[in-house]
């Protein structure tokens, strides 16, 4: 399809003894916000570095804009990168750092473009401060401004909210949504799924170098669907009643007193009535939503055990 912007096939990166990324396969479509989620050391940065042309794959292929990539391909120019820490000269100001980048791009109208970018990330008032005196969050914002230099079509942001305060996180989130609405395709990594869920339209979970799941936003929300937690006097007596009277098959006994029902369509009162009518006392009943974070932890844990 023509609106595939990035496609990776069997992408693998091996550093001496570590397999940082293993046979990654996915496509990113125009206009997506592709969220890459994984724990520390999962291989997020390495994967993004390969896509951004900083690191060469050991095996596998990358296609950008439907063209196979090799070193120094001009299509890389249509990308803006913020990978790991922003690359900044500490002894120069934010303005100077942006100016260097603008010069490397050969931009004619420096001043206007730089001031717009500083405005966009909220650094206008501190543009003369040396970067060594910047806070972590300010450096991160400057890194985003630099990534936007030259108006890229694709933005790669590796943990962009690292070190940002809540206001900063919300600013950057709005900025990302805003850029996306202007047609920029964005790849963003994080180790917090909750945070990604506020922006991403697609999610890839990477664990120990492997992409273990890819979901659209809708699919992910379905996966995290509601469950009903019922606390009763005796679980062993309660479960047959659930099955026979209410036709519930999808449940899980958590302990002697608690059972979880993964069928949110059943009204609470029907469960209570059925149990009470059959002589079981109900201590509590609660509708729960599984948090995204829990979901993520379960995925990565189950993989840990599966791999021994």
């Amino acid at each position: 399809m023509s609106n595939v912007i990035i496609e990776v096939n069997q992408l693998t990166k091996k550093f001496k003894s570590t397999l940082a990324v293993r046979q990654a396969d996915f496509k990113i479509y125009k206009g997506e916000i592709f969220g890459l989620i994984g724990q520390n050391g999962a291989g997020k940065s390495t994967l993004l570095k390969m896509i951004g042309g900083l690191v060469y794959p050991s095996t596998g292929k990358i296609h950008l804009f439907n063209s196979e990539m090799n070193a120094n391909h001009p299509y890389y120019e249509r990308m803006g990168l913020l990978i790991e820490n922003a690359g900044l000269y500490p002894q120069y100001s934010a303005y100077d750092n942006l100016k260097f980048v603008a010069m490397s791009y050969g931009l004619k109208d420096h001043l206007k473009h730089i001031n717009e970018l500083l405005e966009l990330v909220g650094l206008s008032r501190t543009n003369k401060t040396k970067v060594k005196n910047y806070s972590m969050g300010m450096k991160q914002r400057l890194g985003i401004a630099i990534a936007l230099m030259g108006s890229p079509d694709v933005l790669i942001l590796d943990e962009p909210i690292n070190g940002l305060d809540p206001q900063g996180i919300s600013d950057i989130r709005n900025l990302i949504l805003d850029l996306n609405s202007k047609g920029i395709t964005i790849i963003i990594s994080s180790h917090i799924l909750e945070e990604l869920s506020k922006v991403a339209t697609k999610y890839a979970i990477i664990h120990k170098g492997e992409i273990i799941e890819i979901h659209s936003k809708e699919e992910l929300l379905l996966k995290c669907e509601d469950r009903i937690e019922v606390e009763v006097s005796d679980v062993k007596m309660a479960t047959p009643i659930l099955e026979e009277h209410l036709n519930i098959g999808n449940y899980k006994v958590m302990n002697d007193h608690t059972v979880c029902i993964y069928d949110s369509h059943i009204e609470n009162y029907r469960i209570v009535n059925a149990l009470v009518e059959n002589g079981i006392s109900v201590h509590s009943i609660m509708k729960h939503k599984q948090s995204l974070e829990q979901y993520f932890l379960e995925r990565t844990e189950s993989v840990v055990t599966a791999h021994g």
């Binding site: 951004g52 120019e77 790991e84 000269y89």
Partner: peptide, 16 residues
């Protein structure tokens, strides 16, 4: 050490 090259590495033939 500053990693500044990351800011222009996507330019055409940037390494050379």
């Amino acid at each position: 050490n500053s990693g500044f090259y990351k800011n222009y590495i996507t330019l055409s033939r940037a390494r050379i």
